[in-house]
Design a protein around this nucleic acid. Structure first.
Length: 491
RNA sequence: GGCCCCUUCGUCUAAUCGGUGAGGACACCAGCCUUUCAAGCUGGCAGCAGGGGUUCAAAUCCCCUAGGGGUCACCA
């Protein structure tokens, strides 16, 4: 036990996206590296936008990535509850303390009034800040207004001095206190604002290190002011750089896939996604790129996290994925690929015509043949159709190129006869037999193999032809050659 | 607009206290391998945002400018 406690605090207002994962990941690396605890807290204080579906999806995503947590939803823990919506009494008590000690006050201004105020300030070229006009309300006025008006609670923030954030990644960051207005800590619906709830929870949950995205750096002095007013000891802060879209803007849905679920559906492996995201804003200090999660955990340290925002580049993720796809153990890939075959429009009925164990055995062979020419699990399915179905279409260009030559029919006929007789029906023998045929006919191997491949698979490219022919078996291979010959050649 | 952060190949990044031909990876291009496509291997293209200082010496330290991002919400 090192006393290190970190938290990942998503709000269930959307899917878990890559930026969130990267933050979760760095927290996880850090705490696992130091033998500390990982706390998952759900920041659901936005009543409008929070939903149970998103919560479910976020938990599912984290589990898929195998980023586990020691305290939080589903596992509990002694600093709970871990949903902010269940901690309202705590926030209210803390807010009351501030009211009692005159460090916070009730404000009865309506959103419309505030909006108007902001616009006036903006027009004058001044920062949009609250005037503080409810500060001076007398106890009697407060009592009267509370009876029939909505109110919020605002923190009385200091007008002079500085607030200094000591950030592990960025160093000392100084803010002048006069830029802060009296910000809201309790909303009119009685729920706390993010800054307030976050500070209270981090304190009571004994969080030692707050590791989060840089967008929160500007909020940190506000949180420190709250903590100071409440007499809390501050956690250490580390603000990790943001992840930006290729056009340098904040990542959003219009930039294509950004959520973990989408990557999962695309056939990206969790190992690859984690490896890729780890490399965005962090490097082990040497030239290593491909690392297991254990290796990264060992190597991780906050002072190797870079300061500058990273632009998200799908190509490298896909490359990494291809790499994992072809180097991970075959049976693991088969297991992970199986759902993609089951759910595919093209092959689902084929899959279900087998007993699962039998299908897995067949699939193992197929995947072994095709996996080093695809990059995702989904592409694995796309590249495998002709192994399972006879009703494939033929590549148009290939047909033009390989079947239109005068002797194409003749070649197919000779291949047919060769394969009919070859014994045993195995890759090496088939290769030799077709090699002899090319000698006899005085044709290059390509002139034999390319039309044969097209006849047997409908494609001009693919895995080792002799392996494919062996996999299909003599009967199917001969049928397909015959069919192609009849369809495309006249001789 | 105020405040804050950031700036090394197109992209992700490395370069212990200032001394490097500025290294690696993806992508791209070429070659090799080969029955095709991949994979693999080899090689290539490409960068210190700009300007001033400090110093014998600056990607590295300081200042300015420019650019990007964040934040200033009864969102988190």
């Amino acid at each position: 036990m090192t006393g290190i406690r970190v938290r990942f605090a998503p709000s269930p207002t959307g899917e878990l996206h890559v930026g969130g994962v990267r933050t979760a990941l760095f927290n996880w690396f850090f705490t696992r590296n130091h033998g500390g605890k990982m706390i998952l807290r759900i920041d659901d204080t936005d009543r409008q936008r929070s939903s149970p579906e998103y919560l479910e999806s976020i938990l599912t995503s984290l589990k898929w990535l195998e980023l586990d947590w020691d305290e939080g939803p589903e596992v509990g823990g002694k600093y709970g509850p871990y949903f902010q919506s269940e901690r309202l009494n705590i926030y209210n008590d803390e807010a009351q303390k501030l009211i009692d000690s005159k460090k916070a006050y009730y404000c009865f201004c309506t959103p419309e009034e505030l909006q108007a105020e902001r616009e006036i300030n903006l027009r004058k070229g001044q920062p949009p800040r609250y005037s503080g006009k409810c500060r001076q309300l007398s106890p009697q006025e407060i009592k009267d207004k509370k009876a029939h008006k909505n109110f919020v609670i605002r923190l009385l923030s200091p007008e002079t001095g500085q607030t200094v954030v000591e950030d592990i990644i960025r160093g000392t960051v100084v803010f002048e206190n006069n830029i802060f207005d009296d910000f809201i800590i309790i909303k009119s619906d009685g729920l706390p604002t993010y800054n307030f709830a976050s500070v209270v929870d981090d304190f009571y949950m004994k969080i030692s290190h707050v590791i989060r995205a840089e967008e929160h750096l500007s909020n940190t002095p506000r949180q420190q002011i709250i903590a100071e007013q409440l007499g809390y000891k501050l956690p250490s802060y580390a603000h990790v750089p943001m992840i930006l879209a290729p056009d340098h803007s904040k990542l959003s849905k219009r930039h294509g896939a950004t959520s973990v679920q989408e990557y999962k559906e695309m056939g990206v492996l969790p190992e690859a996604l984690i490896n890729y995201l780890a490399l965005l804003g962090w490097s082990p200090g040497d030239d290593r790129e491909l690392m297991s999660i254990n290796e990264m955990t060992d190597l991780f340290s906050l002072d190797k996290v870079s300061k500058n925002p990273a632009i998200y580049d799908l190509k490298k993720l896909i490359w990494l994925n291809g790499n994992y796809l072809r180097t991970m153990k075959l049976d693991v890939i088969v297991q992970k690929a199986l759902p993609f075959f089951k759910n595919s429009d093209e092959l689902s009925d084929v899959v279900h015509s087998y007993r699962e164990d039998d299908f897995k055995k067949i699939l193992e062979k197929v995947i072994d043949l095709v996996r080093d020419r695809v990059k995702t699990l989904r592409e694995l399915v796309e590249a495998s159709g002709y192994f399972f179905r006879d009703d494939f279409t033929y590549d148009e260009k290939g047909v033009k190129k390989h079947f239109s030559k005068k002797n194409a029919g003749e070649i197919l006929a000779k291949v047919y006869r060769t394969l009919k007789d070859v014994e045993p029906y195995q890759p090496e023998q088939i290769k030799n037999a077709l090699g002899e045929l090319s000698q006899t006919l005085n044709l290059s191997m390509g002139r034999i193999n390319l039309p044969t491949r097209l006849a047997v698979t409908g494609r001009t490219m693919g895995p080792d032809l002799f392996e494919v022919i062996t996999f299909l078996g003599r009967e199917k291979t001969l049928e397909r050659i015959k069919k192609a010959k009849e369809l495309f050649t006249s001789s």
